[in-house]
Amino acid sequence: MNTFGKTNWWEAGTAILLFALGAYLAWSGFGFGIGQLNRVGAGFFPLAVGVMLMGLAVAIFIQFRQSAAQPRKLPWRPIAAIAAGLVAFALLVTTLGFVIATAVLVFVTALGDRTVHVRRAAITAIAMAVFGYVVFIVLFRLPLNPFWW
């Protein structure tokens, strides 16, 4: 494949993001106050780290912008399922309670794997909810509401 001369936007984009992070750190560093050498301010380290990151980002950009490496296709299904499951747990644990939150978390994340059957995901979810209730509520006595009442 002829890749010479073409910009690899995955690599270049990461380098640009790193540069932006460095610039942000350095700029905030000035805001916090650099101080003097005998009285180093809160902004000195952010500035130093920021400058270092900017330099590295430039070097990475130069070295990798034409790299032929392509990330394989992103596994959207697992990413979406795991994110959704964790968000659901975060939302449910304070409202509907720990047991429901666990069951939903396990069920939703299990669907992230293409090979899983809905029935197996459901069974795993119920089993984990029971296990979680026994271990963390009954045995460990975590101060969590098991149910919504």
């Binding site: 795991i82 644990v93 666990t102 978390l105 299990a110 995901a121 795993t124 979680g132 975590l142 969590l144």
Partner: peptide
């Protein structure tokens, strides 16, 4: 693995949450 990883995610959630009880 499709039983194992949801279980791990459960442990991750409960582990992280039980440190500070911060969503």
């Amino acid at each position: 693995y499709n039983i194992l990883f949801p279980a791990m995610l459960f442990f991750i959630c409960i582990g992280v949450y039980s440190v500070n009880f911060q969503v």
